[in-house]
Design a protein around this nucleic acid. Sequence first.
DNA 1: CTCTTTTTTGTCCATACGGCCAGATTTTAG
DNA 2: CTAAAATCTGGCCGTATGGACAAAAAAGAG
Lengths: 207, 207
Amino acid sequence: MSSENRPPERKRRSFIEEARRAQIVEAAARVVAEAGYANASLARIAERADISKSVITYHFSGKDEILRSVVSGFFERAWAHMEGRISAEPTALGQVRAWIGAQLEYFDEHRTEFLAVIEIVGGHRTADGSLAFAAEMAEEVDGLAEILARGQRDGEFRAFDPRTVANIILRCADGVLGSWTTNDAVDLPAQSAALLDFIDHAIRSGP
Amino acid sequence: MSSENRPPERKRRSFIEEARRAQIVEAAARVVAEAGYANASLARIAERADISKSVITYHFSGKDEILRSVVSGFFERAWAHMEGRISAEPTALGQVRAWIGAQLEYFDEHRTEFLAVIEIVGGHRTADGSLAFAAEMAEEVDGLAEILARGQRDGEFRAFDPRTVANIILRCADGVLGSWTTNDAVDLPAQSAALLDFIDHAIRSGP
DNA sequence: CTCTTTTTTGTCCATACGGCCAGATTTTAG
DNA sequence: CTAAAATCTGGCCGTATGGACAAAAAAGAG
């Protein structure tokens, strides 16, 4: 703690390094989204990025680091998009609606990345066989549960277990997005409105 | 149509054949549930079933047929469990609650198989890269949507798009089950009650 | 018991995987 | 310009995959 902390960079990265990493991460997201987690190989990613496979192993320690970059980068940018929208709302209900609404909106604008993240989060495992992103998912649930609990204290919401319902809500949102990404006939804005309506009716205390 | 139809068997299967297939399908479900779809190989399945890998390729045409057997067998048995319960309910709301309740109940009693099916449905692809079980999922949505539409005609439910909401409800249910299978701290009966309550508030027309 | 069919085994194959490395090439620094 | 550092390439390795195969073993039929 003597010196300042700089978590994002232990050694300064060159321009080329930064550009290559971004290119590779983007290619990885596209491959995973199109071919699925199980079929996403380094060779495919290299081919998609029009580079030699070795470039990937030069800039990344391994497949795991690439996938983690895809996921964490996406979450960071998504949260940056959502954060302001949520905190601007005065009521808990408004914050819940802002959360889900902004999330759907951001994912809508980044469809490929979203599909890739879903694949990775659901498929990537550590060496011992457990899901590699379980902790990140739990964090998200906790964040929304906090808002729900506040809404209950203020009388906005009816009685329920905040974490349980937070989990249900987030799963709903992912589900709507999942059906949208795999089915062209799905109209996302309409689905989004229906979902917000659905949640609204489900958690509000009043009639 | 001159003779009777017998879709489940083109050629009568021997006792051994039937037993082996069941054993292999069960081993496959266990392996997929524990190691994930991407790590489920014929070798692992054979090891788990304590048989030679070649026995699998003798009784099944390939990996695809095994996975299809896991999924279709599970859906058939689950539907058999749910069907009576649903049709016994006089109201549409009762049928929706019976659907979700019976589904959670059945899945609770067959946790390993359920996890395997989730993995397979979400991960298994055809040669062209599209999800192999998209049609089956759509069927399920249609079935529930029909009940919702009837409930709307009878005035039980408020106005919404039946297919959209059917999709949301089913995704919710899967979500609750997903969090339960990956998190030991989750209490399924409590979650199930919360979910039924959640849905109840969300779709009912009256206050 | 013998012959035929079914079932099982061990081995082999072509392919694909993630990762490694020596050397070539490019960029940067002095 | 020259030397050092960074970057890139093609090839290679060990492993694992799904599947094919002949031969052995077991089961069934007469």
